[in-house]
């Protein structure tokens, strides 16, 4: 192996529980409706203001997994700054895993209230745990990140704990 898992493990450990605050901006219906379309989910709560209002919302709401599924809220790095696998090496939520292969392992989400068209959103991102483990096909890192999405008044919208495997 060309990279040292234990070195990367130590590097990520130093980043534990150092929250980064990232502005998501104002949610717009076209963005989350495209997400719903790409997910093949045509729930009228995401598309029809009349249905959404009848259910007590001020306007169409975002699909529950929209915020936590978007990988970056910045313009993003130029193409030459992407890793070989296409992932960004240095955006606001990038993990310091240069040379490793990363895969989503699972998530746990709490939905406090659905954001709607026009909701201001801020994300607090932190790496909450890292473990060096021995898997069936060799050593690997299990990395847990936490993402808290808040509205403009600081009220929680979604809390997400996501696990990644890096090897």
């Amino acid at each position: 192996m060309s990279v040292s898992l234990s070195l990367i493990y130590e590097q990520i450990k130093r980043e534990l529980n150092k929250p980064r605050r990232i502005s998501v901006g104002t949610l717009q219906r076209r963005e989350f409706q495209r997400f719903a379309v790409a997910s093949d989910d045509h729930n009228p709560l995401f598309f029809d203001d009349t249905v959404a209002r009848a259910c007590g919302y001020p306007a169409v709401v975002a699909p529950p997994l929209y915020l936590s599924s978007v990988m970056g809220w910045e313009a993003g790095p130029p193409q030459e700054a992407l890793r070989l696998d296409g992932t960004p090496a240095a955006d606001a939520t990038a993990l310091a895993i240069e040379g490793l292969r990363l895969m989503g392992a699972g998530q746990e989400l709490e939905f406090h209230r659905p954001p709607t068209d026009g909701t201001e959103v801020v994300m607090e991102f932190s790496v909450s745990n890292v473990e060096l483990k021995q898997g069936r096909s060799g050593a690997l890192l299990v990395i847990e990140v936490q993402k808290k999405y808040l509205d403009g008044a600081g009220l929680p919208l979604v809390t997400c704990r996501e696990n990644f495997i890096a090897r």
């Binding site: 729930n43 529950p64 997994l65 599924s69 699972g106 998530q107 989400l109 939905f111």
Partner: peptide, 30 residues
Amino acid sequence: QSHLHGCFLAQAVMDWAGPQAHLAGLRWQN
């Protein structure tokens, strides 16, 4: 995508529960 697996599971739940239901929590493993 990992998140798309989650979207499919969430959709199965919310299609069953109806528009006035509130999804409070979801977890899954890939």
